[in-house]
């Protein structure tokens, strides 16, 4: 009886499911940042991590009946857009100089 009830709540989508999905997506983003050498892929992985965090913010906002989480998502989106713009500008600068976007070249970038 108790087990059946537990299985029901396990499968029924709630806050925990969204948090688990968010954690998995965040970890995949970390994996991308660590494993890839291409600066563009690294920037995309960072976007993926920010999106995963946004998902947990919105899930908490829904289940805590509190709007503050959505406001935070709004701010994170703005910062992510700014970060993408600056990061891509740096990638363009690296490409101009070295003709490829490998993070190994970033240490040679002086102004």
């Amino acid at each position: 009886m108790q087990d059946q009830k537990g299985a029901h709540t396990m499968l029924h989508v709630g806050l925990n499911h969204y948090l688990v999905l968010s954690g998995v997506l965040f970890s995949i983003g970390v994996l991308g940042v660590l494993l890839r050498k291409n600066a563009l892929i690294i920037l995309m992985s960072i976007e993926l991590m920010l999106n995963a965090v946004n998902l947990s913010f919105v899930a908490f906002s829904k289940y805590a009946q509190n709007m503050d989480g959505q406001i935070m998502v709004f701010f994170v989106m703005t910062i992510a857009a700014a970060e993408a713009a600056v990061g891509l500008a740096i990638a363009v600068a690296v490409f101009k100089r070295f003709k490829e976007v490998n993070i190994a070249h970033f240490e040679n970038l002086k102004g």
Binding site: L15, N16, Y18, L19, V20, S22, G23, V24, F26, S27, V30, L31, L34, S56
Partner: peptide, 15 residues
């Protein structure tokens, strides 16, 4: 990354 994933997923599942 596996450890990070385990911690995050475990925390998310137990809240």
């Amino acid at each position: 990354v596996g450890v990070v994933c385990g911690v995050l997923v475990g925390a998310g599942a137990m809240i």
